[in-house]
Design a protein around this nucleic acid. Structure first.
Length: 485
RNA sequence: GGCGGCAUAGCCAAGUGGAAAGGCGACGGUCUGCAAAACCGUUAUUCUCCGGUUCAAAUCCGGAUGCCGCCUCCA
């Protein structure tokens, strides 16, 4: 089974061939730590988390680097606004970032370097570019000369002429070419700085990624990823810097994820429609967001809307319910039994993932197994238990490659119920009491009363299931509750 | 102005040459006191429109319409 990935650089799906057999060196641009993460950050984190998990599942030894950009204009601005130091701003949002990533079950990368811990290396890279004639100094600033790098624009598919024609580049008389970008910026009064051969200053954007990718992965490395918006200028500039300095190829495969729109509009501060990860997880299980993202191709734009989230919430509940049903089956000491249909599902799953991480198609395998499981459980035939155990293991293993179904069933149910009762303002004991009251009514064949209780709960988005084990209640969202909480 | 992308059922969505995945919803059935859940079945003879290439096109080519992104900080 060979994996194909879409390479932004060539604009085609290509067979993935690592530099060193059996290993993958992956660098993904992390966040600039000046604010809380929103669901757009979540998409990128989830997409590359799945890339990481999938390579690992295929047996690759993956070195995965995700950086923090912890010095930058926006951080400095934030520090001034809040009256704290740039370092405190960074620390605050790094903490926030980790909370969010943990909530979303994002696996920890191998390395998570911070820009400011690599200043010496950056200075060294700037010196190299200066000595090679790719950079020039103006007062305390150092700029990269885009004309010195013949391939400039090849990644983002545009030429210098075209970019100039765009004419929306900043006017800076001092630069040799308006498209030249800062490698190093002289610090103004009150701004953070490091002492360097070019004077007191701080790094420009882009350079931290060139430095940290080289340090932890070497050049060239296999895959560089990030959001689509980073193609230009960020990744174009990283490439220009690194290739000019090393004379070597920078990256073999470029992978970029599409954007998240919010109710058909671009998320932006001015529209005030930015949904933070922290706010999402208050309302829904984090795997709902993951399922939603993975049911779309990672390169397509995706529209976040309440209806889709509710749909995926229902779908996720169904998967967990299948797990719950399996949990009720006595399977101690049972040896799992492989069967043909399971083999086929497995093949489909891997084929989908091998085709440029087609998670939407891979998910269909997961729903297939869940259906198979339910069917076998419905049969109630003891002899099927080994097959049930096999299918169950398979379901968990595929789902986990996508970072789904990672909660214990009980944890999930408790979480769902708690979230729901908070939303409707009913206490758990009150619900249990009503359920018990209905159980009594049913015993007495007072079905009128029983049905009345069921209706009351139903209006609160709670459904009752009378099973052989007794009466259980579950959360079933109803339209009138949408948007609340 | 330049570059690029998208248009598939009621909704979301995969599929880029050979019988239209999957999810949500709806409807019918099994089950049930009635339900719910689960399962079974039905729900796009057709993929925005118009031409063309081909034995064969949602998929390739040309055109039209509509939507979106990037070119400036941005995941």
């Amino acid at each position: 089974m060979s994996l194909k990935v879409y390479n932004t650089f060539t604009g085609r799906k290509e067979k993935f061939t690592p530099i060193h057999e059996g290993s993958v060196k992956l660098y993904v641009c992390g966040v600039t730590v000046y604010d809380h993460c929103h669901i757009g950050h979540a998409r990128s984190a989830i997409v590359f988390d799945v890339v990481y998990r999938y390579f690992t599942a295929k047996g690759y030894d993956v070195k995965f680097v995700k950086n923090f950009t912890d010095i930058d204009d926006k951080i400095i601005k934030k520090a001034q606004e809040e009256g704290i130091s740039w370092k405190e701003v960074g620390d605050k949002y790094i903490t926030s970032f980790y909370e969010d990533m943990e909530a979303l079950h994002i696996l920890k990368p191998t390395y998570e370097p911070k820009a400011t811990e690599h200043i010496d290396d950056m200075v060294h890279l700037v010196e190299t570019l200066l000595s090679k004639g790719n950079a020039y100094r103006i007062d305390g600033d150092v700029y990269f000369s885009v004309e010195s790098y013949r391939e400039y624009g090849e990644l983002s598919k545009r030429t210098l002429e075209e970019m100039m024609a765009g004419a929306r580049v900043e006017i800076n008389e001092r630069k040799r070419n308006p498209l030249d970008f800062a490698l190093w910026k002289a610090s103004k009064e009150g701004e953070p700085y490091w002492n360097t051969p070019f004077g007191k200053g701080r790094p420009g954007w882009h350079i931290e990624c060139s430095v940290m990718s080289a340090k932890y992965l070497g050049n060239p490395f296999d895959i560089h990823g990030g959001g689509k918006d980073l193609i230009f200028p960020h990744h174009e500039n990283e490439r220009a810097q690194t290739e000019s300095a090393t004379g070597m190829r920078f990256v073999n495969y470029w992978i970029h994820n599409g954007f998240v729109n919010f109710e058909k509009e671009k998320m932006s501060k001015s529209l005030g429609n930015i949904l933070l990860i922290k706010d999402f997880v208050k309302k829904y299980h984090p795997e709902v967001l993951r399922l939603f993202f993975l049911s779309n191709h990672y390169r397509s734009p995706i529209d976040y809307n309440e209806k889709s989230i509710e749909d995926n919430n229902n779908a996720l509940n169904r998967l967990y319910y299948a797990l719950e049903r399996v949990a009720d089956i006595q399977k101690k000491g049972i040896t799992p039994q492989k069967y043909t249909e399971a083999d086929e599902i497995e093949r489909n799953f891997y084929e989908a993932m091998d085709d440029d991480f087609n998670t939407a198609l891979a998910l269909s395998s997961i729903f297939e197994i869940s259906r198979t499981l339910n069917r076998m459980i419905d049969e109630g035939d003891e002899s099927l238990v080994p097959f049930i155990v096999y299918a169950h293991n398979q379901l968990i293993s595929f789902a986990n490659i996508l970072g789904l179904l990672e909660d214990e069933v009980n944890t999930f149910n408790v979480y769902e119920k708690q979230r729901h009762v908070n939303r409707i303002g009913l206490a758990l004991p009150a619900i249990e009491e009503m359920v018990q009251e209905r159980v009594e009514a049913r015993k007495n064949r007072d079905y009128k009363k029983a049905d009345r209780i069921r209706d009351i709960l139903s209006e609160k988005g709670i459904i009752l299931q009378d099973t052989p084990k007794g009466t259980e209640w579950r959360v079933k969202n109803i339209p009138s509750l949408k948007g609340e909480g």
